[in-house]
Amino acid sequence: MARLIEPLIPALRRYARALLRDRGAADDLVQDGLERAIGRWHQRRHDGDARSWLFSIVHNLAVNRMRQSTRRGPHLPLDAAAEAATGLPPTQEQGLRHRDLLRALESLPEEQRSVVLLVSVEDLSYAEVAETLKIPLGTVMSRLSRGRERLRQAMEGAEAAGMPHPQSHLRRVK
């Protein structure tokens, strides 16, 4: 069991962090997911993929937590409040693009965001994503296509809102 689970922990942590956007909550989520997997190891399909099964557990726990936090409202620990009040936004272009990408990713519907993260970040195959999320393969491809397109449009919109692109077409006024 440990031989199958241990190599997957970094990928589970990345996925949880991308879903929850909070390092501490993501680590708690992965720990809860691993506890659930270990406690229910006997319920796992032996012909199934342990990777997909673990991602399913973490995904379902994340969805439950997001629903719960929506009902309860945001939580800000006291020690994080001081950092948030004194932090400065990044001034480098790369930092701004990264921020824009994270915002665009956050703006995606949860269904599209999950598929984009599992395929693009965690490198799961379409079939593995379909099994993990318990959706048809065609739905995975559709959500991925729509999610990528929305990300592309959001990033182009962010660039348009900033400085003019070097290839912009300017009109000469006389």
Rank of each mutant, 00 (worst) to 15 (best):
P10K: 07
S120N: 11
E93S: 10
R36C: 15
G95C: 02
R14I: 11
A130V: 04
R21M: 00
L29E: 00
V121D: 07
R51A: 14
P166M: 04
Q43I: 13
G24H: 13
G48N: 13
G95V: 04
A11C: 14
M155V: 05
H46D: 15
E149K: 08
S107F: 00
G157F: 04
L101Q: 11
L19F: 05
P136M: 09
E111P: 09
L20S: 00
A26C: 06
K174C: 12
R51I: 06
R152Y: 07
L117V: 05
E110W: 03
V129W: 01
M1W: 11
L12T: 02
V119H: 07
P164L: 10
S142T: 13
L133D: 00
S168D: 15
G24N: 15
D28C: 08
G147S: 07
G39L: 12
R97E: 08
L101H: 06
R148K: 07
G48P: 15
L88S: 07
K134T: 09
I57D: 07
A158Y: 10
G162W: 14
G162Q: 14
M155T: 09
A158M: 10
R113N: 03
L8Q: 14
H169A: 11
I57C: 07
A18K: 06
A81I: 02
G39E: 02
R14N: 09
I9R: 14
R36E: 14
Q43Y: 11
A161R: 11
A84Y: 09
L144C: 05
L117F: 01
Q43M: 06
M141A: 12
R143F: 05
A62Q: 03
R146S: 04
R152I: 12
R99F: 13
I135G: 03
R146N: 02
Q167K: 05
R103G: 07
A84Q: 08
L29T: 04
V63D: 00
E122Y: 01
H75G: 10
P164N: 02
Q153F: 09
R67L: 02
V119C: 11
M155R: 02
Q43L: 13
L20I: 01
R21L: 01
P89W: 10
L133W: 00
E131M: 02
D123A: 15
W53P: 00
L78K: 06
L117P: 05
P164V: 08
R97V: 05
T132S: 01
Y15Q: 04
H59T: 12
A11H: 14
D100C: 10
M66W: 00
M141C: 10
P74S: 08
R23D: 14
G95L: 02
I9F: 06
T70M: 05
R146F: 04
W41L: 15
Q167T: 03
A154W: 00
G157K: 11
I5H: 06
L8R: 09
E131F: 01
L133E: 00
L144D: 04
R14K: 12
R13Q: 10
I38F: 05
D79T: 15
V115L: 03
R71I: 11
D100Y: 10
